[in-house]
C-alpha cells in the first residue's frame, strides 16, 4: 500500500522502502493477499494472522484519512480516485479474508471446537463460534429434529447411543487436491507415509497435490496455495 503522508526527502526514502518491499513481495497488502488466497483454497481453517490484520487495518485507516485530506484540499480527482481504488482493494481483501474464515467456522464449528484448530481462531472468532454459532445451530436441530426422536437417538454428536465415537460431526475434507505454488525449492518431498510417492519441489513452480500431504508446508509458509 502506498503511503500518502510525508514530503520531500522523507517521502523519497519512504517510497524507496515500499518499492524495495514490493519487489520482494512482502508488503502487507501482498502478505494479506497471500493469507487470503491460502485461506480461500485450504479446506480447513488456518492460523489467524492477527498481527497482519492489525497492520492492514491501521494502514487502511491511514489511507482513509489521506483520501479525506486530499478531497478537502482539492487535490486532482484522478489522484484521489486512484487512492480510493487502492483503499477499496485493500478493504475487499480484508473483508473477504474475515468472511471466508467465518464461513469455515460456521461449517465445521463442532469439529473446530473439539480439536486444537480452536487455537487458530482469533478471540472474536472464538466468541462467534462458541456462544453464538454452535448454540444457535444446536438449538435449531434440537427443537426441530432431535427432541422428537426416540430416547437413545437424540445426540447431536452421535448417530445413536451405541456409537462409540462422535460420528455425526462434519469435518473438512483434507484429501482434496489443491493448486499450489512454491516460492523456494523445497527439494524431494514425501507425499505419503509409505514413501512411495516422492516429488521434487523446485522453486517457482505450480503443482496439484493433496492438501493433506502439503499441510505442513502451508503452515510453515514454504508453499502458497492458489
Amino acid at each position: 500500500m502506498a503511503s500518502g503522508s510525508g514530503s520531500g526527502s522523507e517521502r523519497w526514502s519512504e517510497d524507496l522502502e515500499t518499492e524495495v518491499a514490493m519487489a520482494m513481495g512482502t508488503t502487507d497488502v501482498e502478505l494479506l493477499k497471500r493469507a487470503w488466497r491460502n485461506e480461500k483454497a485450504a479446506p480447513e481453517i488456518l492460523q489467524f494472522e492477527a498481527a497482519l490484520v492489525l497492520r492492514a487495518r491501521e494502514q487502511i485507516q491511514l489511507l482513509e484519512e489521506t483520501v479525506e485530506e486530499f478531497t478537502e484540499n482539492g487535490v486532482d480527482d484522478l489522484v484521489v480516485s486512484l487512492y480510493q481504488m487502492d483503499l477499496d482493494r485493500s478493504l475487499f481483501l480484508l473483508r473477504s479474508y474475515l468472511r471466508i474464515r467465518l464461513q469455515k467456522i460456521e461449517k465445521y464449528m463442532i469439529h473446530i471446537s473439539k480439536t486444537n484448530l480452536w487455537n487458530r481462531l482469533s478471540e472474536q472468532e472464538q466468541r462467534f463460534a462458541k456462544s453464538r454459532c454452535t448454540d444457535i445451530m444446536e438449538k435449531h436441530l434440537e427443537q426441530s429434529v432431535l427432541s422428537r426422536l426416540p430416547y437413545g437417538y437424540q445426540s447431536i454428536l452421535k448417530q445413536s447411543i451405541s456409537s462409540e465415537e462422535d460420528d455425526m460431526v462434519p469435518e473438512p475434507q483434507l484429501d482434496t487436491f489443491v493448486f499450489c505454488k512454491t516460492k523456494h525449492a523445497v527439494g524431494a518431498f514425501q507425499l505419503d507415509d509409505t514413501g512411495d510417492e516422492i516429488v521434487d519441489l523446485v522453486a517457482d513452480d505450480l503443482y496439484v497435490l493433496r492438501y493433506k500431504s502439503i499441510r505442513g508446508l502451508v503452515e510453515s509458509g514454504r508453499i502458497d496455495l492458489v
Binding site: 453464538r132 454459532c133 444457535i136
Partner: peptide, 9 residues
C-alpha cells in the same frame, strides 16, 4: 439469531 451473531461479530 445467526444474523445477530454476525452483527455482533
Amino acid at each position: 439469531n445467526h444474523s445477530a451473531a454476525i452483527q455482533s461479530y
